[in-house]
Design a protein around this nucleic acid. Structure first.
Lengths: 200, 200
DNA sequence: CGTCAGTTTTACCAGTTGGTCAAATTAATT
DNA sequence: AATTAATTTGACCAACTGGTAAAACTGACG
């Protein structure tokens, strides 16, 4: 029966999450400090702990939100749609997420690299299910002759790897290509690649 | 002229580096502690600082070694070789590195995600040069009609992204595909993809 | 055996860490 | 305006951090 969220609560909670995202995505959980988050959010440390019970609580709130946002688009793939276009649409959406929310991508990358200690159950549960379902769909498209025969799991991995690369390894991309936005070129390359891989 | 390296020095320095690699690759620089490295290497903390002047010195020794090992294979690509096979050989080598040295890959990923504060100059220097040279070579192959016309930079990125994915996101891959070695399937997929992308 | 460079340990330090607590302040409600 | 509930702060703490200093130990070599 707690629906009453003060406007101050809303404001501060989202300020803390925004600051936490910034800090955690750069230094990982263990490398981040409450003081950094406090400074970044212009709140005092005890004040932060008034809204979140611990440093870990902030981190987990961010991760939880993230996983929800990331799994939905996979579920939105239409089994009745045109296969190549559906996969392409998903890949483009994923790339757009990397462009618009690179910090979220890096936060997730950090967590995974460190062995996903706090979300391993989600990986072997919800994520695995969603991927298994998608893989089955792709396989059925293959068998119906709508797309080329291809390993669906590694196809998915390759989409993830490439799209997230432009967020997670942004510094490296910028170092090689120069500063600026390279997502349009990336999208063109990705589309070309997927069409080549999928069309018979 | 200090050539005299005691057998104890060699043993301990490499023990420290091995322990440092294990710890740093999991928690990043800021998230790692000398105590962890001490425990992992079975040496006391002051003893570690007898061999390396600081925590950062260990980290930088690891990074430096890493960059050397990673850039060499790019240079080893033979401009006179058969283009598709040369690129394939490089990609396979990169994937093998991910399989054999996933920790090194994760250490590098951590550094890059955090904005590469300690190696940005290498990225915009040595790495950029090596990639530019390779991109020019690929472009010349395109123009000679030996491979399909393709954006060489994003081709390189896609190889890096996919190969490193299997090391950096190993937990996720294992969660989806089940525990075990999936590098052989990955290699097959990668080869298929590159042949499709490169052959006219 | 003695010696001395090389190695390891014990004790320690100042700064930082996540987190607590009660008091003070501010906002909402009557 | 008065009362109550929500918010913010300052002072504080125990555990941990990277790093130091000097003493104690070890091993190679004449």
């Amino acid at each position: 029966m707690k629906k009453t969220e003060t406007r101050i609560q809303k404001k501060n909670q989202s300020a803390i999450k925004a600051a936490g995202l910034k800090v955690f995505s750069q230094f990982g959980f263990r490398g981040s400090t409450l003081d950094q988050i406090a400074t970044e959010s212009s709140l005092s440390k005890p004040n932060i702990l008034y809204y979140f019970s611990s440093k870990e609580a902030i981190y987990e709130a961010l991760l939880s939100q993230l996983l929800t946002d990331w799994l939905q688009p996979v579920r939105d793939i239409d089994p009745a749609g045109e296969p190549v276009e559906e996969i392409l649409k998903y890949a483009q959406h994923k790339l757009k997420m990397s462009r618009l929310y690179p910090r979220e991508s890096r936060l997730y990358a950090n967590e995974i690299i460190q062995g996903a200690p706090r979300i391993k159950s989600v990986l072997t549960g919800e994520l695995r299910d969603v991927v298994t379902t998608l893989a089955a769909l792709i396989k059925s498209w293959s068998e119906a002759g709508l797309i080329r025969v291809i390993d669906p799991y590694h196809l998915i991995f390759s989409i993830w790897a490439m799209t997230q690369h432009y967020a997670d390894f942004d510094v490296q991309v910028q170092a090689v290509l120069g500063e600026g936005d390279h997502f349009d070129d990336a999208e063109q390359y990705l589309e070309d690649m997927l069409r080549r891989m999928l069309t018979v």
